[in-house]
Design a protein around this nucleic acid. Sequence first.
DNA 1: ATGAAAGCGCTAACAG
DNA 2: CTGTTAGCGCTTTCAT
Lengths: 342, 342
Amino acid sequence: MVRVKKSPSKNISIEDVARSAGVSITTVSRVINKFSSVKEKNRVRVLEVIKELNFQPSIFAQRLATGKSNVVALVIPRYEGMFYSFYVLELIRGIGTLCEALKLDLLLHLTDAKINLNLRGAGGIIFSDIIGNREQLDDAFKSGTSCMVINNYVSDLDVDCIAVDNVGGGVSAVEYLISLGHKKIAHLTGDLITQAAQQRLQGYREALKKHGLVVDERYIFKTDYSRGHARQAAEKLLKITEPATAVFVASDSMALEVMAVARELGKHIPDDLSIVGFDDNPSGLYGPVALTTVRQPLVKMAQEGVKRLNQLMQLGQEKRPKAQKLILPTELVVRESCRAPQ
Amino acid sequence: MVRVKKSPSKNISIEDVARSAGVSITTVSRVINKFSSVKEKNRVRVLEVIKELNFQPSIFAQRLATGKSNVVALVIPRYEGMFYSFYVLELIRGIGTLCEALKLDLLLHLTDAKINLNLRGAGGIIFSDIIGNREQLDDAFKSGTSCMVINNYVSDLDVDCIAVDNVGGGVSAVEYLISLGHKKIAHLTGDLITQAAQQRLQGYREALKKHGLVVDERYIFKTDYSRGHARQAAEKLLKITEPATAVFVASDSMALEVMAVARELGKHIPDDLSIVGFDDNPSGLYGPVALTTVRQPLVKMAQEGVKRLNQLMQLGQEKRPKAQKLILPTELVVRESCRAPQ
DNA sequence: ATGAAAGCGCTAACAG
DNA sequence: CTGTTAGCGCTTTCAT
């Protein structure tokens, strides 16, 4: 009838500590949770025992008891190309380090969106981009879980999000080229499945129109952020009749590829072709010609996202505040890859 | 005295399902855990209700009850440079996708080794490289947690590990250069804080000795895997008197940098300098001269590691089998960046 | 085939 | 300042 008390498990529990320290479980719990009310003498004693027994509280029991979870799930869609980028690594780095600092547990989900994540364990979820997983976001949001969308401005749901001013970045890149006197400006897009790539393209178009230049669709090359496609596009770009004198490329790694192709074809940069990239990837600094680019605050975006999510998580499901939607500014970094057309 | 029953929380529990389905909690639990003993009719009914209520069991309660955890913690040391690599991304990709497939929760820890991770929650831990966090490994191992070390052969602890044959890779790279007729072969090392970089250097030395060539320390350039340092090293390398005719570089991204510098200095590859990289990073394919390199099975290493760890986790703490230590072979991929010395 | 009830290890009222 | 005790939501005997 009565279940036999399990043989002494190896894992020490709060009870062992309490017994060993000669206090109640509650007191130990208070020490763990830094309640100020515990008598100094007891506190010290308990701490000693904890160290001695090498005790670590079970996070499962803690969470079951409190109903709170400080697990942050990071959901990254797993589409081709996405995972080969400077961008993803920066994101993981930004989020990872801040979570570590805030003592949040970071759960990584590389999802192809077909999987039904068990989100129930997570206290908060960060969606990095929404590619084919909008439903997951909606579900999670509806269920009351704290959500944060990164690198994707979501206008049709009252969810917190933080993105980069891609349109503005595109505009500033192209306006800069225009200011140098360029009229024939091409664009290599990123994967247009991403909002960022769409918006950079939009910025490109807006800037041209604003300055009374026609948008020539032959100057728009659609790629997927990969170096391979960038190379193909660059070859076309450089070989068409009446070639462009400048190009705005949606990512630095692609821009480097364009530079390489140009050199191989005997073109000189920036004399024969001006190039502006996007990212401020350090790799852009080490070539023969330092790359002019649009800096986007990736790590900052990641970290602000985590910070805000943490706030939301602390507030809890009940009182979800009005969503905060941020767009971080970009900054044109002028280096050596552009000059006036010859 | 008696605590008031909490107002109906939003989270449905197994109890709600049981009530709604007209069965006991136990039966629901059995359905969840796919016990064959449940009558078909009940099983179907319960499943219906689960779907209807959109119920997901609390993993915390499950784990508290079972004492088992299918959380895998991935510990990545956070030292300079480490995080800017193809390598890390490949690792995360490999581990991430397999965990997703095996329904393991992946907890990501970017650690600077000072933090005391609460490992108690994790059912298994993957240490990616051991840089300044050997103590964590020892602790975790001692406590009985299933451990797996990746990209680092650990000989002084009976822990499972899986690494790449870096020595062999280095040897094959250098022997290939020797076979082409090179005698003056330089080496750009990776960050020698890593075992991989040490071993590639070792392979370089072994190959030279084996073929009766002297190891000239002036031909060994120590870097940290970064492109910036690679550039500096490349400049020195190309400018010394009696320059090498070939170079074995510890990573592809650095090798690409060396190629770029060579071109800038007017050297032709492979005529003036033969280059072998390490990684088989796709970026190596897109340059004007495709990079000859040593392919290392990163994703495979990551995935085999997870697979094995999963086995260990299923076995549980009690019966930890004898550790299995694997070294995965590398493969020389000959492309266009090498030829006989002129 | 099913259910009652005892934990799992911790937190949080509440009462001293 | 400290201890008692009732859960948190699930799994797992043990009986039926």
